[in-house]
Design a binder for these strands. Structure first.
Length: 567
RNA sequence: UGGGGCGUCGACAAGCGGUUAAGUCACAGGAUUUUGAUUCCUGCAUGCGGAGGUUCGAAUCCUCCCGCCCCAGCCA
């Protein structure tokens, strides 16, 4: 146990998970010399999402907890699907999460030479052979889940012939798919992965890093375990579906007689009201259901980032959900809670009116302006205060006024009093309507004695509203987001053969006519705020000083909405 | 009739033969509040997929059964 000093910045809220137990046991027996070395091994063929964040936090977190190391390795064994743009995006996402791989950045393609040499070694040992069967034939020969497979007619070629054929594959003598190199294991194995898996295939495609140097490429199964071995990984953490592959990786490592990491599988993350499969995420982008990989409704790290989700909240989330081996679906409310908890502590409060309703304070002197002192964050006195301009005409939130309010409504209504946050108590005297009968303006009177927010006569005012001065506020666009899907589990292919039928038509609502307090014009993209009583928001990358744009990260908890809903 | 896993509160998840079966989210009450926010209390599994068995004692061990997930890419 040497994990006491390593986690000072990671409050150990998390209880030990089964991986900790396994590592503790390895450390106790000195299996890896007390060393803990993990890695995060993405394939650079798509954007990282919150499910990857679970793996990233796990792998880097393990290294931190045990005073070990964690590598970043790109598993780039398939040149037809991988691009270097993804490599850049992945680097950015991992560092945004706050992890540092300190130059230990590797690529499976770094190991192509070694992998090739090892393949030759296997051939020499009679443990691999070149097969001329086509893809369809190989499938046929593989058998089924319940029937054993059959040996390929080429399974017993001589070592010399295999060596020659493999060299000619490498030299480009054959076309794509004409030959493969297979391991010679057991065509009758219950585990399909052991039925002579393919090690190399011919792919006459340029690789994003090795260019045209190779026309044969290792399969993931052949590359992955050995890559871990080369890097001296002690614990290879992966998801459950690779459990069946472990015997194969073990077989390779033993046949080669090289360093043998311990593979440990855990359950991948599932989240309610979203999908976390590369294929489905890609479809959302390709078919224009979202604006891109970084659409704030996407569960991608770039989407969450743009939406305003702080990386600290993602860490907290990953700590809270734990790591186990049972398939599970985490309630998105847990993530929302983590976001609120962090933002509550850190986000400056500002006032923004999303659906404006003009209020004229008839007894407030025309042309008079007062600078009201406003605290920036009641949770953090060190955040200080700011001045907010107040005047005769202001905007309030449309939903903060009701002409005929229910009993528990303590906002504005004809004849009712409310407090304006950081300012005076006002009373609604008159409701101005247009020809259509819609409320277009409120005439109110303020009580000059209530600048403190308190009434000197001690009368109680239950409601407090946010507001923006009409003369000083800035126009802004605010984008409201809700769940991308209306169903809790849109990825359930039995229930929803086409997951796009679950898309939420109201997942994005753009409000172009909002009013925000003047200071918000200076908001830099990515900056996070609490808009008083409305939620947490972040300035979007589209934002400019002339036209600020904000994304709603998450709403505030709203017990009034619950009461109102119940009637 | 193949191989590999998993089943503890609505959702996650501790628990590893002796605990009143942790904690978190959600939910429901209540208190405080110039954000109906925050914060703070309180409640929320005589029960651990089911049935047997072992034991003084079982969520934890054994047996059988039931349910769910993964595997037949020259994808990762």
């Amino acid at each position: 146990m040497n994990d006491s000093k390593s986690d000072k910045d990671e409050a150990p809220r998390e209880t030990a998970n089964f991986i900790h137990h396994l590592i503790d046991e390895d450390n106790r027996t000195g299996r890896f010399g007390g060393r803990v070395h993990t890695r995060f091994p993405p394939e650079p063929n798509g954007f990282l999402h919150i499910g990857h964040a679970k793996s990233i936090c796990l792998n880097f977190g393990l290294a931190r907890r045990y005073g070990g190391l964690c590598n970043l390795r790109f598993d780039d064994t398939n040149p037809t699907r991988e691009e270097s743009e993804y490599v850049d995006a992945i680097r950015e996402d991992v560092s945004w999460l706050g992890f540092d791989w300190s130059g230990r950045e590797f690529f499976a393609s770094d190991y192509f030479d070694q992998l090739h040499a090892w393949a030759v070694e296997l051939i020499r040992a009679g443990k691999a052979y070149v097969d001329d069967l086509g893809a369809d034939e190989i499938r046929e020969y593989r058998g089924t889940l319940t029937e054993p497979g059959r040996d390929s007619p080429h399974r017993n070629r001589t070592v010399e012939e295999n060596l020659d054929l493999f060299e000619r594959m490498r030299a480009g003598e054959f076309g794509d798919g004409e030959r493969v190199l297979r391991a010679r294991i057991d065509m009758a194995a219950g585990n399909l992965n052991m039925r002579d898996p393919v090690l190399y295939r011919i792919l006459k495609a340029p690789h994003h890093r090795t260019g045209n140097r190779w026309c044969i490429y290792p399969m993931y199964d052949w590359a992955h375990g050995q890559s871990d071995s080369i890097e001296g990984i002690s614990h290879s953490i992966c998801t459950l579906e690779f459990e069946d592959h472990r015997p194969l990786y073990d077989w390779f490592l033993d046949a080669l007689g090289v360093h043998h990491p311990q593979q440990i599988e855990f359950a991948r993350l599932n989240l309610t009201y979203t999908v976390l499969s590369k294929r489905k995420l890609l479809a959302l982008v390709k078919n224009g259901h979202v604006t891109g990989w970084d659409d704030p409704r996407m569960p991608t790290l770039s989407g969450l980032r743009r939406r305003g989700v702080p990386p600290e909240a993602i860490h907290d989330f990953c700590d809270r959900i734990g790591v186990a081996r049972s398939n599970s679906t985490v309630d998105i409310a847990v993530l929302d809670h983590c976001v609120r908890e962090f933002m509550n502590r850190t986000a400056p409060r500002m006032m923004a009116v999303l659906n404006p309703l003009k209020v004229v304070i008839e007894n407030y002197p025309e042309g008079q302006v007062e600078e009201m002192e406003a605290e920036n964050n009641p949770e953090d006195p060190s955040a200080g205060t700011r001045k907010v301009s107040f005047g005769r005409e202001i905007y309030i939130e449309r939903e903060d006024f009701m002409e005929d309010p229910p009993k528990k409504f303590f906002r504005l209504a004809p004849g009712a009093e409310v407090r304006l946050k950081h300012a005076y108590i006002i009373r609604c005297e008159k409701v101005v309507k247009n020809e259509a009968g819609e409320v277009v303006q409120l005439i109110c009177r303020y009580d000059p004695e209530t600048k403190s927010g308190q009434a000197p006569d001690g009368r109680k005012v239950k409601g407090t509203l946010h507001w923006v001065s009409a003369a000083h506020g800035v126009r802004a666009e605010v984008r409201l987001y809700e769940h991308l899907f209306t169903e809790e589990n849109p990825g359930d292919e039995k229930a929803f053969p086409d997951f796009t039928t679950c898309l939420n038509p109201q997942s994005r609502q753009v409000l172009p006519e909002c009013w925000v307090e003047a200071g918000l014009a200076r908001a830099k993209p990515g900056e996070r705020y609490q808009f008083l009583r409305m939620g947490y928001f972040a300035a979007d990358k589209d934002s400019t000083a002339e036209r600020p744009v904000f994304n709603r990260t998450v709403t505030l908890r709203d017990t009034w909405a619950k009461i109102a809903r119940k009637g």
